[in-house]
Every structure is written in structure tokens, then in C-alpha cells.
Simulated scan of single mutants.
Amino acid sequence: MFSSTKAGFFREPTQFEQFQWSPLKYVTRALYHILSTLRTPPKPVDDAIRIVCISDTHNSTPPIPDGDVLIHAGDLTENGTLSELQAQIDWLSSLPHTHKVAIAGNHDTYLDPLSRPTLAVEDRTGSLDWKGINYLQSTSLTLTFPSHGNRALNVYGAPHVPLCGGSSFAFQYPRHLDHWTETIPSDTNILVTHSPPRNYRDNPHALPSGVGCAGLLRALWRVKPRLHVFGHVHAGAGRNYVGWDAGQVAYDRVAMKKHGGFREVLSLEAWRDLVCVAIFGLKGILTTGAWAGERKVTVLVNAATYYDGTNLDHSEKEVQVVLL
């Protein structure tokens, strides 16, 4: 049912196409997003820490709001050269945020020893001055905030993405492999990856299974961080709140299924998942405090600040700010 000529990384299929490919999946996804939007966002704690999230700047220097923490989720550059990277680092270093965290993305070629040989000879050697920016590459750090009651946040960052291009792209792994099992510490408060998890702020129509990573989604269910910042899929910029309840299980089950065409209307399991998403979504709206009954809520932020809808016409996206 899926045709890659109909939908790619940069062209969202029409609503009718999506309905044709998978009517119950289309209705379930639409219902989930409507009900999630109607739920009141979790209330931040008093004296909240202000976290500014950006990604996919691709050499640009958009206006950045003030905050306590600045997180860059990769693709600082377009061509991944040493000079491009240092220019982005210099720009980030000039910003006033107390803590700064950055990871690489698939365009940041120099930072991956495996992709670095694809650069011109003059771009393969040299060093970077990170100027106090915390660069994470499958590593963790703890940020402390004396001005916020000595609160601390554990941050884990990793640049890896499912295979999406040629050898000049960095930090790729075969799409069928699970790169994330047991790699993310269980006490992580803020997770920073370049790849989105499957189903969330992803482009589910860019490939038969979407651009995001299913293994990363499974890791999210295990760790349940308070905040997950990512990018990579420019068109997915924005945020979601995930409450990790039975309705979420049903939504993920539906979203992971292949397009079934109109024959899926005969599936009792598909109807059961649709009803489950509806019940838990309505419960979340009607419950006092909206998300208050959830054991944990994760804010998912696709922080891409660049959108290339035609690969030529570039425009800036709104910078996401999260209070924790």
C-alpha cells in the first residue's frame, strides 16, 4: 500500500492518502493527537529550571531565548567540516545560558571517526575548542543548580540515527538493529538524541516504517525520562506529553503496524486499540489535574529549528522552551 514516490522526508501525504492506506490507523492516530492536545500540560515545579531546546541549526544562528540550560540535539552543521563545527561552537559559547549541552547529528561528519575520511583531506585533522560546552557522545553528566535549591538533573546524550544516507553521514546504524538496549542509564532525567523515537514527532510516512527508531522507543518505555530532546526530522518540530498508560500502549501498537488498507476494519484488535486510546484520552481530560494521575510524564521535544520543505526553501521554526 505504501509508495515511497508518494511521500518522502519532505512531502506529507494528503489526509485522503493516509486514510486510504490505513483507515483505522488514521482515525486512531488523529484521535490520539486531538485528545492529547486537550489535556492540560503537567504543572512545572516551583522555581522551575528553564530548558531551551534546539536542533538541526545546520550552520544557522537563530535567535535563542534565555534560560538556565541550552540543549542542542545535533546537526550543528550542513557539511560536517571542522570549520563549520567550530563556528557553531563559537556561536553557542557566546550565548548566556548557565549550562550548555550538545550532541552531534548525522550531518556532523568530522565528529564520527568512521565518516571523517569522506571529508576533504584538509578537513580530516585538527581539534575543536568546545569552550565549556558539554559535548556528549553516548555519555552522561549531572547538571547542578545552586540557584534552584541545589537541584540536579542527570543528562544522557547520544548522536546515533538509523541508517538514512551515504557514508558521509555520521553515527548511523542499520535500521533493523536495536542500538539502545541498556545503553541509557535508568536514572536519566533528560535524554538527548538526534533520532526521534518511532511514532513521536517522527515522519511516519517518509518510509514504510517511519524515520524514527523503534529501539529508542522501547528504551523510552524502560527509562521514562522527564524530558527527551531530539531532532533529525525537521517537519516534526514541536512537543508531545506521554503518560505511559494503557492508552499509550494501544497507540504505540497501532502506530507500529504496517498499513492494512480497508481490510483492517475487520480486525477486532484494531477496534479494541481505538477504543482504548479513546477511553484513556478522555479520562486524562476529565481527571482533575489532567496528568496528575500518571506515575510519570515525559515531555518529548523535536527541537528542529530548520525546516526544508522543498530542500531549497528554508525557514526557522519556533524554539522550544521546557520548564522542569
Rank of each mutant, 00 (worst) to 15 (best):
F171M: 09
P65Y: 00
N240V: 10
N154S: 11
P204T: 08
R50A: 11
Y307H: 07
D46R: 10
D273R: 10
T37V: 06
N311M: 13
L324G: 05
K6S: 04
K257R: 03
L111R: 11
V223L: 04
S140H: 04
P117E: 12
G67D: 01
L114T: 08
P23K: 12
P42I: 10
H234F: 14
D47T: 15
K224V: 02
I190F: 01
C213R: 02
N154D: 13
Q320F: 14
H179I: 14
Y110T: 15
Q248A: 11
L153V: 00
W271Y: 02
F16Y: 15
P196H: 02
V275P: 07
H179P: 12
V301S: 14
L114P: 03
L70G: 03
V192Q: 11
P62V: 14
K100I: 10
S94H: 14
W291R: 06
K283I: 11
D129Y: 02
V301T: 03
L217N: 01
N199T: 11
S138Q: 07
T298W: 00
G293I: 04
Q86F: 11
S195Y: 03
A104F: 01
A170N: 07
A278V: 07
L35K: 00
D90W: 12
H176K: 10
Q18L: 08
G281T: 08
Y251I: 10
T37M: 05
L227P: 06
A237T: 06
A292P: 06
N154T: 05
D66G: 14
G67K: 11
Q248R: 12
Q15Y: 14
R198K: 11
P96Y: 05
H160Q: 01
I133W: 06
S127P: 09
P42V: 13
A102E: 09
D252L: 01
W271Q: 07
P225K: 05
